[in-house]
């Protein structure tokens, strides 16, 4: 099991950053989503033993966070959010050092440092002083140091933060490749929904230190039976007026399309019958699916209204798969 939390709380002084979280998740690529201050980074740092837990139990890959911190850090590679490096070193020396700190023998650490730098695309700059590298390159050095010891779990804290579009695309490609081809499990913490959607298979949504949704992204993106996207040609006004009479609600969508929500129990046939009546052509018809953004926003909204977005969250039994 990748992550198991049992009434787990973390506090900064008197303020609870994670509040009585109970969940159990297995995933190849897990995305931690949430607005700023939701507790994503706090959760990661506590799992790594950087922060003490206030109460409860936490396990990562079956290892207890309180008792087996060192063993966890042997298995986990962590890419921090902020710029972190040792000045005056070249990337290859920095990685060699980090490798030796993880227990790699000096020879293996050197070999591995070169290989990992080539892998992340820094092969050409591996002998340049680390202080003179661009932000994007720094980000890759941080990813490389997390990979140096071949971790079983890779935790990436905001991996695309501050990157230009090309560098971001490159970073997401690397992460995607690792998800596809490596044995490692990957946990990505981000507030960028697109990044999570691109790289992750499962998601855990946090808000104000509590889990508001969790599960497989594809399963959560359920088709909404009552919302449709249509592109029309012909007498649209009369078509819309007829639909409004039976209780449909219309909103303009992208690219001259309309988003129409029908009352519960209404068959989609009503669109075709009305279109036939008013000689309107339906050029595009699409039963709308939720995006990750919809899931995220709905989860936050539900939490505000006092209900949990998905039944999987805050339960002890396995949530995903």
């Amino acid at each position: 099991m990748l992550l198991e939390l049992d009434h787990f709380s973390v506090a900064y002084g008197r303020r609870l950053a994670l509040c009585d979280v109970t969940l159990s998740m297995e995933s190849k690529a897990l995305g931690l989503l949430g607005p700023n201050g939701a507790g994503k980074s706090t959760l990661i740092r506590t799992l790594l033993g950087l922060l003490p837990a206030y109460s409860g139990q936490a396990r990562i890959e079956g290892l207890d966070v309180h008792r087996q911190g060192k063993r966890i850090r042997e298995l986990v590679g962590y890419m921090p959010e902020h710029e972190s490096y040792l000045p005056g070193m070249t990337p290859v020396r920095f990685l060699r050092f980090m490798g030796e700190m993880c227990g790699l023998p000096p020879g293996a650490a050197t070999e591995r440092a070169h290989e990992v730098l080539f892998y992340v695309g820094l092969g050409e700059v591996r002998y340049r002083p680390i202080d003179g590298l661009s932000y994007g390159m720094h980000q890759k050095v941080r990813l490389a140091q997390a990979l140096i010891h071949g971790p079983r779990v890779l935790i990436l804290d905001e991996p695309t933060n501050g990157l230009d579009p090309d560098a971001r695309k490159d970073m997401l490609r690397l992460i995607g490749e690792m998800v596809e081809h490596s044995d490692s499990k990957i946990v990505i913490c981000s507030h960028l929904l697109k990044d999570i959607e691109t790289c992750c298979r499962d998601v855990l949504v946090l808000k104000k230190g509590q889990v508001v949704a969790s599960g497989n992204i594809e399963e959560m993106k359920k088709t909404d039976d009552n919302v449709f996207e249509l592109r029309l040609k012909g007498n649209v006004d009369r078509f819309m007026a007829d639909l409004a009479q039976i209780g449909c609600q219309m909103a303009p969508g992208e690219h001259d399309s309309y988003q129409i929500s029908t009352p519960p129990g209404t068959s989609p046939r009503v669109f075709f019958e009305t279109a036939h009546r008013h000689q309107v052509q339906i050029r595009h018809f699409y039963a709308r699916r939720d995006t990750l953004e919809d899931i995220f926003l709905q989860a936050l909204l539900d939490e505000e209204n006092g209900k949990t977005a998905h039944p999987q969250s805050n339960r002890k039994e396995p949530a995903v798969r």
Binding site: E100, C102, G103, L104, G150, H181, S182, S184
Partner: peptide, 10 residues
């Protein structure tokens, strides 16, 4: 392609 390291640790 990404390869993990499976050697002995010190």
């Amino acid at each position: 392609t990404y390869q993990t390291w499976k050697g002995e640790r010190r």
